[in-house]
Design a protein around this nucleic acid. Structure first.
Lengths: 84, 84
DNA sequence: TGGTTATTTCGAAGTTTATCTAAATAAAGT
DNA sequence: ACTTTATTTAGATAAACTTCGAAATAACCA
């Protein structure tokens, strides 16, 4: 749970998740939506990947990232428990 | 949203929320549930308070903390949106 | 083989965070 | 007034985090 929550604690990463909710994207496309450098975005993506919030697969020259909705259920469960 | 998510990113703070879900507690009682010092717990409580995840009121000599479930709805909304 | 494109890894700088002890504040009782 | 109890604030330190530019890796094409 720890990696999951700290992955979610950064607003750039939460915005990446919102982008991927709309559609799958490659790393460059994702980076184009932010002002920070590509290495920084790559780093954020690796944190999201380690938290299992996204997964990626290679397609030709590019790497496509997708939202992993399954992991979000763990967060949802925690919040729902507290709200009861 | 930023203070909210970073408040949730620390496991001690999430455990404080779980404790307060069971019942309201004063700061000392909360601290007794952890190995870290009382000043550290006090610091965590102030972060939770600033994020509006808990509120507090004085009762005689002690300060009673309670879970603020309303704020959790914002988190829940974000997660629910992503899960759709 | 060499060049181009896409992405990650490396190494460093600056900022933020969690934690501690010691000191300060505040309320209550003696 | 002084002491005890409950909690917070202050100041310091070490670890973790975000960010960058430059270099490395990998795939594709000419």
């Amino acid at each position: 749970m720890d990696k999951l929550w700290s992955a979610l604690s950064d607003s750039t990463r939460r915005n990446i998740l919102l982008l991927l909710h709309e559609k799958d994207m490659n790393a460059g496309e994702i980076a184009d939506n932010f002002k920070i450098s590509k290495p920084s975005i790559s780093h954020h993506l690796s944190i999201l990947r380690e938290a299992h919030l996204v997964y990626s697969h290679k397609e030709g020259q590019t790497i496509i990232y997708s939202l992993n909705k399954t992991t979000l259920r763990d967060v949802s469960r925690f919040i729902t428990l507290l709200m009861k």
